[in-house]
């Protein structure tokens, strides 16, 4: 077993963990006219992958690695705090915790493990999505790179699907954008797993990527003011 099938299950949009309810800022970008068609969407997805995608991938890989070796609640709280420090927008933190809580609940039924129980106890308000994803991946049998790949992949697939619905775009054209992003998705997963600084594990967490996207922060907060929204975030 090398985690391949587990990876597919984890990355599948049919995984009942609530991922479909989030547009990753696309809904607000459409409402503001910043994304109007496939050209804008391609640039949106590429930018999202290189920022939020890379950061969640790195945190997911760190969580997956931690889950393989360590079950101390304190370390889970510390990793979750590192995720907090990389999300300035309260709307983004809330969306991330909502997704993390749902994913953790689902994962505990699919792949019950002491590690997931510890994580749920350590962060009772719900861990960040990246942290839950890495821990769930480890419990399912994935390696850190596979958890990172899942995080990078879902950072663009969810928003792409949302754009199809919001703008009535041709689904094949939009999936072509995702196909074109495949090398960048793998690149983000590799960059996420490159040992930051000179230390691996908890001593290197401070140096994990924190690539921020000011427009995503503004969009996430603007989305909360939309009374007609279809997506949670």
């Amino acid at each position: 077993m090398n985690g391949e099938a587990a990876l597919l299950l984890l990355a599948d949009s049919r995984l009942p963990a609530g991922g479909h309810a989030h547009s990753g800022g696309v809904e607000e970008a459409v409402r503001r006219g910043a994304v109007t068609g496939t050209g804008d969407l391609a640039r949106f997805l590429r930018g999202r992958l290189a920022t939020a995608g890379l950061v969640t991938a790195a945190l997911a890989a760190a969580a997956c690695e931690l889950a393989a070796s360590e079950t101390a609640a304190e370390l889970w709280r510390r990793l979750d705090a590192e995720a907090d420090a990389r999300a300035a927008s309260p709307a983004q933190r809330e969306a991330s915790r909502t997704q993390g809580r749902l994913l953790l609940r689902t994962a505990r039924r699919l792949w019950p493990s002491a590690v997931l129980d510890t994580l749920a106890r350590a962060v009772p308000e719900g861990p960040h999505h990246a942290v839950a994803l890495g821990a769930a991946g480890a419990s399912a049998g994935c390696a850190p790179r596979q958890a990172a790949l899942t995080a990078a992949y879902t950072s663009v697939t969810g928003p792409a699907t949302a754009a199809v619905r919001l703008l009535g775009l041709d689904p094949v054209t939009v999936h072509r954008l995702l196909a074109d992003l495949a090398p960048a998705i793998e690149g983000a997963a590799s960059a996420a797993c490159a040992s930051p600084g000179d230390a691996a594990g908890p001593t290197g967490w401070h140096a994990l990527p924190g690539h921020s996207a000011p427009a995503l922060d503004l969009l996430a907060e603007g989305h909360l003011t939309n009374p007609m929204k279809l997506f949670v975030s």
């Binding site: 800022g25 910043a34 640039r43 949106f44 930018g47 920022t51 996207a213 000011p214 427009a215």
Partner: peptide, 10 residues
């Protein structure tokens, strides 16, 4: 990847 992305700096 970032310049001109509506997700980053618009």
């Amino acid at each position: 990847a970032l310049d001109g992305s509506p997700a980053v700096y618009g």
